[in-house]
Design a protein around this nucleic acid. Sequence first.
DNA 1: GCCAACGTTGGC
DNA 2: GCCAACGTTGGC
Length: 154
Amino acid sequence: MAKQYWLMKSEPNEFSIDDLEARPQQKEPWDGVRNYQARNMMRDQMKKGDRIFFYHSNCDVPGITGIAEVAGESYPDPTAFDPDDSHYDPKSDPDEPRWYLVDVKFVRKTKRTIPLAELKERPELAEMPLVRRGNRLSVMPVTPQQWKFILSME
DNA sequence: GCCAACGTTGGC
DNA sequence: GCCAACGTTGGC
């Protein structure tokens, strides 16, 4: 299958692109997602080697700060089974897991933060869920055209 | 199955 | 800190 492209949001005060770069093997399980649309994409569609825009939300300058890649196939999110974890979900049964995740691996930081404000100005990106009003999806697909265009804004 | 209340996301 | 937009929950 052709390589696919994605965008994943993270709050940098929780987990930033620098945190990802600093991780052992520069890899991190993308746990804690509790939204069905986002889960479905991670569980069913994201494949090893797919590229990801790493997006910082809820911060001074929200925008794309780096590139990562999907490190392997999806698997059940262990934090859903842990009563001590803030993302614990008693309704997720290990025999029938409700939540899934993928591991994400650092590729590089973008040359600069590409701010949401600039992404919004570009008609080429008007179809991205990211720039649409009220969208709260934390994992979303990016078309090859959008991917290429955003890279040209670096 | 409807829908009001509530909680969360996330830009500003 | 405000608040609009959503998703989820739970009473009926």
